[in-house]
């Protein structure tokens, strides 16, 4: 029987690898063209809903561990205690750490209940369930969603000020994109002078403030609040970190620290506020929001 004199020496592992790489590029292209909506958006919602119980379990299991380490860090500064006290601390350490963690969360929740958003806005208090899957994800997952009246684009604040905005919503969860994300730009106003500018996220580093056609100078500690753009006006966003003056009367560039402590956000409030006419590139971030219908919600009204 005749057989071919050569056999193609295809390494099937390499072929599979190349196939998966190609598939990845196809997925990326399709998802980018859909701009986060379409099948990709639906799959994300499903994945988030399915994965939430897993995160709940891990939250429940790891909370005492986190509390323990937080307690340890609190105890680092304590010195000169006698041996009896040290033994007592060792015995009560785990219990104490857990209690302190709980108390801190209660205090934070109490503080956040005192936040007064402008213009009698209703708000929904939510707990942060999880953060993004990598260091490059400036995302927080919160435990309130469409069923609570939350829709895409709503501002999110904590006791310090603006935290971010809602970028996707499922029935019982929502994702918040932090203002520190490099794709986010926020229109702000200097409270002291009334001049406006644009704050740009730079990840974990300080945000950058740019002001154009200005001859004013900025002082360290100047409060920056939201201008009338995508977000309701008057929300605290950041404080100027370095003095700065305009260059030749044209532009000014300096850095600013967010007033909200973005690295330690446990509870937030979602302001029931959306604005459809934010078309100016200067005043919005670069994502395209996904329209989600507003449903009946269980919102709370903040006493003014």
């Amino acid at each position: 029987m005749w057989r071919p004199s050569w056999r193609p020496s295809v390494d099937r592992t390499v072929a599979l690898f190349l196939g998966l790489v190609f598939l990845s590029f196809v997925l990326i292209t399709v998802d980018l063209r859909a701009q986060g909506a379409g099948v990709g958006g639906s799959l994300r919602d499903v994945a988030q809903t399915v994965f939430r119980p897993v995160q709940n379990v891990f939250n429940a299991v790891t909370d005492p561990i986190v509390g323990f380490f937080e307690g340890i860090s609190d105890l680092v500064g304590v010195r000169g205690e006698n041996e009896d006290l040290r033994q007592e601390v060792a015995r009560l350490e785990a219990e104490l750490a857990e209690t302190e963690a709980l108390q801190a969360r209660v205090r934070e929740l109490e503080q956040i209940l005192g936040v007064e958003p402008p213009d009698d806005l209703e708000s929904v208090t939510a707990r942060v369930l999880a953060r993004g899957v990598s260091e490059f994800d400036h995302i927080r997952l919160i435990d309130k969603g469409r069923a609570d009246g939350i829709t895409v684009d709503m501002p999110v604040v904590d006791e310090g000020g603006l935290v971010g905005r809602i970028v996707s919503v499922t029935e019982h969860e929502a994702r918040v994109r932090l203002i520190s994300d490099p794709t986010v730009r926020v229109a702000v106003q200097v409270e002291r002078t009334g001049e406006t500018g644009v704050l740009t996220g730079r990840g974990s580093e300080r945000m950058v403030l740019e002001m154009f056609n200005t001859d004013a100078s900025l002082l360290e500690g100047d409060l920056l609040v939201t201008a009338d753009g995508r977000f309701p006006a008057g929300l605290s966003v950041a404080t100027v970190a370095e003095d700065a003056a305009a260059e030749v009367g044209f532009s000014l560039r300096t850095t600013a620290d967010t007033t909200a402590e973005l690295t330690r956000v446990d509870f937030v409030r979602v302001l029931v506020f959306t604005r459809d006419d934010t078309s100016s590139d200067d005043l919005s971030d670069l994502e395209t929001p996904v329209e989600v219908p507003l449903e009946t919600s269980t919102t709370t009204t903040v006493p003014q």
């Binding site: 690898f17 998966l20 790489v21 598939l23 990845s24 590029f25 196809v26 997925l27 990326i28 399709v30 998802d31 980018l32 986060g36 990709g40 799959l43 994300r44 994945a47 988030q48 994965f51 993004g132 899957v133 990598s134 490059f136 994800d137 995302i139 970028v167 996707s168 994702r175 994109r177």
Partner: peptide, 18 residues
């Protein structure tokens, strides 16, 4: 899975992990 749980384009982490 990471792509679905993040806001990065679908397939980006898949490519990196592969």
């Amino acid at each position: 899975l990471l792509d679905l749980l993040s806001e990065s384009p679908l397939g980006l982490w898949a490519l990196v992990h592969t």
